[in-house]
Design a protein around this nucleic acid. Structure first.
Lengths: 207, 207, 207, 207
DNA sequence: AATGAATGAGCCTTCATTCAT
DNA sequence: CATGAATGAAGGCTCATTCAT
């Protein structure tokens, strides 16, 4: 019953990870199926055995990102957490993925998040969906009197996600990794803090 | 009544604008030179008369973005403005460009800002340069006691630019335009406000 | 009866030979890769499966010519043959190639031997190399008192190779083939004879 | 009546000479009309004012070579010269042109003499014509008992022209010029000597 | 005579995908 | 499952030639 540990899944995942690495370093367009096969150490045709097409492979990559994120968002909606904690969890998902699987986060930033080109109606739907779920958390905060209401919830949502996304984006751009978990935690705090309390020097408030 | 307006520059600019439109709608990769020529209403070869290659054309596009931005940043460095006003000017450049030339802003977001693929050393240098100039403003704010110093200036810079960029990005994604200058102004205020004072409901501060 | 003869090598050689035929009849420049594929009876892309580019294909052609020739020259340098015999062997290589593979010899004459355009430093090196090896044989002849020393060895080398090359060249020009081995042998003798003993009527020497 | 000295002819010749230089250095195929215009210091379209097409320009170049040569050959046929002197005159034409107008000689060697590609029926006719006229001289020599008759006159013709052509060809290949008229004369003698009397050491004949 | 902008057919090369073994 | 040879559509770029001024 033990035998070789699921050779099928093993190979498939190897190709998947190879795809992440290749797409990260060359970009989706310039990543050739041949490159991915070579990186995975498999033959040319085997990639097609597991993934019907390049597009199919890219879909699988997006699925992995969105799948985890939607799972989190669903949990959040019914979780007994404060708005600040919920926003913290969202930040954690982004930073955590970047920490554990930088290639996946990288590809989200460069090929999924900003690419109009790669945007099919399906993919766009994921986005709007996620935006709306985040906006629900923001609205909840406004309702609870925790977040300011002089701006539409949509604006605050953009600003919140923007801080988060660009932070990773900047790290991606210079291919910088977190030194340790401590640094990751600190970055998460900064993003949440500045969103909630602003960048203004707090001592000024006591004048 | 004004005669033909410099035919040479006129044609070149027509091709340039056509390129913006085509690249915006199809993405840099899928934008064919033939599409651009057709969109500009010129022959195929004429595009190459003005731009040596597709890459050269893309460089010209980036140049227009960075050129305007660096001009602004240089002005800011020696201008007698408060830090808040300077940050407001940066926001204005982004939103203003999106208002007047949405295609250019769109391309910046989708093809320049986030694309590792299209990133040459030259292009990366522009980024770092701009980041550093913004960071100088942030540092100035910290020195003046206006911005909090419990986070590195770099973090605050990422968060500031992130709010700004993603705001446009979100509008780009759904191809949304500003209804009027008023809305643009309002969005600018929101971004600056939230960055400086946070999203927290201000009434809480008076408890 | 011999089974399929190494399909890989077989296809590659078929394309190679097709290239020889097409380049011979249209010239290197006007020979399109599509023509070569069609001539070989294969698909367009397969040519690129075996040869990285048109230039690479042309390199392979040159290699075949020079490879055989240098092999001969190396053998000659240590062979216990008279100078006349060695010169005869060189003549044989040229005429023999023209006899067996007229296309290859043709291309050598028209695209390799005289083309400044197609001349890379690498290719030029082959030439000089071959010239020098021939010159060594000539020098040997001068040292042995068989060849006149009132002209530099370089002059004699040019004259010797020139007779040989132009003979083929003229045949190439009118696309003439050797009728039989006998004719080939006779031509070889004429070239060697005239070089060694001159075109002057021998009876005059007895006056 | 003096005025500017035939501006038309002046410009035309400037373009012609520019074409020689450009074609010599880049080869006929890679020589662009734009290059020629630039080299001549004229505008793009002017080249077309004087030459109907690139082909027409190339024809003019060939005409200059063949024109001079056929004039010589015609003179020779009725001149009271010995066969050796006539062969010497032919050698002189080749070497002399190379001495005075190396580009023209170069182009003859690389683009006219050996190129099957550039060979139109018209151009081929020139060749055969010249070959035949040279062969007439050779035949005359055989008839007079000066040249050996154990080889067909055609063979001797090839060998004679081959020595001559390749000598220039080799100089062309390494872009070598004659140091002075003396060297040119010496080369001419070598070619004629070896053709007539052979490369064999003359002292051997007296043993 | 002179200029150079404008045209567009042609060709090399890439690479996702298919398929025979 | 695995391999890699075979296919061919697609697109960037070149450059001779034309033409309006």
């Amino acid at each position: 019953m033990a035998g070789k540990p699921k050779p099928r899944k093993h190979r498939e995942e190897a190709i998947f990870q190879a795809a992440l690495r290749v797409i990260k370093s060359k970009g989706l367009h310039k990543a050739r199926m041949a490159d991915i096969a070579a990186e995975a150490g498999t033959s040319y045709g085997l990639v097609y055995h597991y993934f019907a097409s390049k597009d199919d492979l890219f879909d699988a990559i997006q699925q992995r990102w969105w799948g985890g994120l939607f799972e989190l968002m669903k949990d959040l909606s019914s979780a007994p957490l404060s708005v600040a904690e919920k926003l913290g969890k969202i930040i954690d998902y982004f930073l955590g993925t970047y920490y554990q699987n930088p290639e996946l986060a990288n590809i989200f930033i460069t090929e999924i998040s900003r690419s109009t080109t790669n945007l099919t109606p399906d993919r766009l739907a994921h986005f709007k969906n996620f935006m709306e779920m985040t906006q629900e958390v923001i609205k909840e905060g406004q309702k609870q009197g925790i977040l300011r209401t002089d701006f539409p919830s949509r604006y605050l949502t953009y600003i919140f996600l923007g801080s988060l996304e660009t932070f990773i984006s900047a790290m991606v751009l210079v291919d910088q990794r977190f030194k340790d978990i401590e640094q990751k935690k600190r970055v998460g705090e900064a993003i949440l803090e500045v969103f909630l309390n602003g960048a203004r020097d707090q001592r000024q408030n006591h004048e």
